[in-house]
Write a protein that binds this DNA or RNA. Sequence first.
DNA 1: GGACTTGTGGTCAGGTCAACCTGAAGGTTG
DNA 2: CAACCTTCAGGTTGACCTGACCACAAGTCC
Lengths: 233, 233
Amino acid sequence: MSADPEQHMVLAVSTVIFSLRPHPDTGEFTLWLPLVRRIRDPFKKRWALPGGPLDNTQDLAEAAKSTMHRTTQVQPRHLEQLYAFGDVDRSPDAPERVVSIVYWALVRQDEDLQVVDAENVEWHPVEEIPSPLAFDHDLIIRYAVDRLRAKVTYSPIAHAFLPEEFSLADLRRVYEAILNRALDPSNFRRQILSQGTVEDTGRRMTGTAHRPPKLYRSAPKSSRYALTIEETP
Amino acid sequence: MSADPEQHMVLAVSTVIFSLRPHPDTGEFTLWLPLVRRIRDPFKKRWALPGGPLDNTQDLAEAAKSTMHRTTQVQPRHLEQLYAFGDVDRSPDAPERVVSIVYWALVRQDEDLQVVDAENVEWHPVEEIPSPLAFDHDLIIRYAVDRLRAKVTYSPIAHAFLPEEFSLADLRRVYEAILNRALDPSNFRRQILSQGTVEDTGRRMTGTAHRPPKLYRSAPKSSRYALTIEETP
DNA sequence: GGACTTGTGGTCAGGTCAACCTGAAGGTTG
DNA sequence: CAACCTTCAGGTTGACCTGACCACAAGTCC
């Protein structure tokens, strides 16, 4: 247990990095995220979220970004603070008490492809996490997925998964992967267009085996929200 | 400035405590919150949110609750983590870097009335905050109010302001105070009843100068949300 | 009793959303 | 080449939600 008053306290940053890739078996798009295999106790050899102690010269979001880049070489597209986890007993057997400020991020599909798995870093489909993870990281991931699902329904963050230009069907497949259910193409189209978060590029995709779809880009954000603390690098 | 790598880092808890009281001038209900006058540098004599360093043996929420009780004698009814503020330059002139995990809470009207203002603690209407506050506390309050406004529209937290039994008009006045606009009594009634968060006690208020309203109590929470990290003491 | 105030219940028009339908525009296949 | 298949693009319909408004209920106050 960790209730020794004399014990050292550590402030750390953990990161949940979402990417979108086809599942190797089914070919369906699903969420993936990188895990790091721990090489020391506690939880030696268990998988864990990328993270590290907070550097005294970095803002929290900076620290999250550099942790992400250091472990996975990705540049997050959407970055947002999730929660601060700090229960006393969340790191049993650890020599020190750890308070983790968790950030979650979305990375773009095309950038993601350049990624080569480093040693002790592996990407996993979010429904096939090698549980139990170290610490309370299973809980953190569940919470992050819930937040992503909720947020995608009222905020245009899904664009962050896609490259510069995309068809509405691409965007719909992103939503379907996140929400894990099929969406009516026609209704989806109407909703997205009505909210004004995408704009027509005037061009169409070529080489499709069917009617070529229009290409869109995400519209420059109008300041929709009065106040936002989220960072979007 | 605070970018000295050798500098000490402190993990603190700050709290935004919302209460509902009539405004002394207009008699309209508005949000109030307690502030503490700082007695030492930095920001000596400025008003600040109640808070304190995180004790090594306490969970974050516990620490928030004990800070609230210590400074204001209130027992929060709804308690929720707001955000972790940790930019390097948020405490200029402070001898150490401070990362603050902020909680916000709602306290019940009737409990609130027992409160006697301690020295250096004062309650203020939320639109009449004595700005500028210490540190980034103005920003924190704005953020907390935004969150409260948003949350009240999709979650039955407003009940936390009211005593055990209340009329729908009482509840409506709470919503009106938070959202800062008038609501149609009839439509409000329909919405609240349809969401099933209150139940009829079978009794009516007495001694009113008009038709006596029914009394309701808040319904036992069904597990509406799949996953919640919020604490409601 | 009559005026007044607030609670309670209902109607109605407009908007939103999911389910469904139809045609357009390409490639694919015999 | 012609028939066909797939996906995009756009429209229609009905269920439901919401806000504005109306009418009555049930007390107190003068």
